[in-house]
Design a protein around this nucleic acid. Sequence first.
DNA 1: TTGATTTTGCAAATTATTTGCAATATCTGC
DNA 2: GCAGATATTGCAAATAATTTGCAAAATCAA
Lengths: 146, 146
Amino acid sequence: MRYGITHFKDLLGGEGYSWTRARSAVLTVLTTVPRPLRAEEIHRALRDPRINLSSVYRALRLFESLDVVQRVELGEGAARYELADDYRDHHHHLVCDACGRIEDVAACPVEAAGLTRHIRKRTGFAVRSHVLELFGLCRTCRRVTG
Amino acid sequence: MRYGITHFKDLLGGEGYSWTRARSAVLTVLTTVPRPLRAEEIHRALRDPRINLSSVYRALRLFESLDVVQRVELGEGAARYELADDYRDHHHHLVCDACGRIEDVAACPVEAAGLTRHIRKRTGFAVRSHVLELFGLCRTCRRVTG
DNA sequence: TTGATTTTGCAAATTATTTGCAATATCTGC
DNA sequence: GCAGATATTGCAAATAATTTGCAAAATCAA
């Protein structure tokens, strides 16, 4: 991770938010596990029965508004959350349709193809962010499932 | 649209499904309106009070399983649905953060950058499909909001 | 440490979507 | 076109993820 946990403490303090047990714990999980997690999974990973699931949701919502965390939707019904690009290098996901495993890919075709500029010129739309998820079969499942 | 509505009737029949009022009506809306719609919006557009919202959901789920319709998730809470690529040329969406307007873009950087092959070579993951949504400010909102 | 302010736990509310089941529409063979 | 077999629908109730109200507890600032 690019910054230590105290960075987040300072960031929250600077924005007028308290540094609480729930927020700290959620961030510790997110900086430790390198893949997008569901609120439920984060809650379980806290291993602190004092912290309620709704506090996890509240923390995630706050972090999202502060661009500390970004939401990832893979069409599973529940959203996933991971550290935002500023803290984790821009990347995308390879989602295996067979086993559900999620890998990261650093390659970004939106940048590579200069798509933002192309769109700006052709349509006047100013792209600020994008979401790209790739679905298919991971190496392992490809061998088995075909 | 690339095929008439009777194409879908034949397709459903061929798969052993009935051609019903609800299914026909939902497809008429989807082939008419050129942007991804929520189940609720589709239901309203039917203008047939006999058709229940749950039938719209059931029809959408069936169409999705038959690759007639594809789900679009823009982080709004509710999913949107549009005709699948086979019936509508592959495209992506420009979603305006300010006014919510959704435009299509034909340009696909995943194809342009040869990302699928790159990933296959480097990781062994076989990409079958992808989801790309672009967020930002449309030409109109850019003038106003900045 | 203390009082003022935020945040939390808990339970209940919301919202999108799904489901059970009896009633109805669609389809198939005549 | 009709009857019976089968598939689908409407409706109401169930789910599942997420949000919220509120009193109690934690955090902050002096």
